[in-house]
Design a protein around this nucleic acid. Structure first.
Lengths: 141, 141
DNA sequence: CTGCATCCCGTGCGATACTG
DNA sequence: CAGTATCGCACGGGATGCAG
């Protein structure tokens, strides 16, 4: 953890065939995870479920701006990837409980590493963005 | 780094106002970074530039399947966020060199953490996905 | 309560063609 | 070499309505 020395282990610094082949890109699980994390709701839901289990409408009420459609779709996606679990309790009004799977729980760690970076360097990004927009054109639209 | 004990530090486990307000979501730099990382090309370009500087067509040749349009747009995006730098050398055939900024370089670390997780747990995700698709319906298409 | 179906829009992304 | 312009498709994502 020295100062200017950025030691990057693992995959990122691993040798890479050039040109990076299409197969490699599509088959790579990194792309999968990145896409998941990149959508608008998955990470937020992951974080909420990381604290406790939620029911459907409870999640719906807990996330301002999400539609039922996207909540359903996102949960299905997380479930499909083995990150969240869906438990149906056969009560008279149906009750469905969502939890994080052990796998999903392990994802919180690397996610928090990235989130931490984002929070730390958010101002720098905002500044760079403002600077770029100002110098490039007067009215960014 | 114990076995089943997942200790999640920082942002992810920080207190969160419920319901999570829309402003919070849009203003949050985490969302920004996640979106960037979630697009198809940014991370790959970040990784390449992390090794050495590249020229435009050199990048174009190094990434199979990317269009000029998306290469330009992605590089502009990275540049706008202060993650990559663009240097024009006033030679007779114009030469443009792309590099990682110090900021961009620091992003490689948390990114590699996530990438590492993806590679480690990729099989589990694939298995869960196959299992889900099989049990849910015979023909997923 | 928990969801699926339908309609619609914005945009990410690729293909192609053209310019300094 | 290093881009820009235009087109078109696919998909994420919101609004609304219906159903078990």
């Amino acid at each position: 953890m020295s100062d200017t020395h950025t030691d990057v282990p693992s995959v990122i610094s691993a040798p890479l065939p050039i040109p990076v082949p299409l197969d490699e890109q599509l088959a790579c699980p990194v792309g999968d995870v990145l896409r998941r994390a990149g959508d608008r709701w998955s990470v937020l839901i992951l974080v909420l479920l990381g604290r406790r289990s939620y029911r459907f409408n409870e999640l719906h009420r807990s996330i301002e701006g999400i539609s039922q459609r996207m909540l359903t779709r996102t949960l299905r996606g997380l479930e499909r990837d083995g990150l969240a679990s869906r438990t149906v309790h056969p009560t008279v009004p149906p009750t469905v409980e969502y939890d994080l799977t052990p796998l999903g729980r392990t994802l919180l760690e690397p996610l928090s590493t990235l989130a931490d970076w984002a929070v730390r360097h958010g101002p720098e990004i905002a500044a760079a963005r403002a600077d770029h927009d100002t110098h490039d054109r007067a009215n960014p639209g």
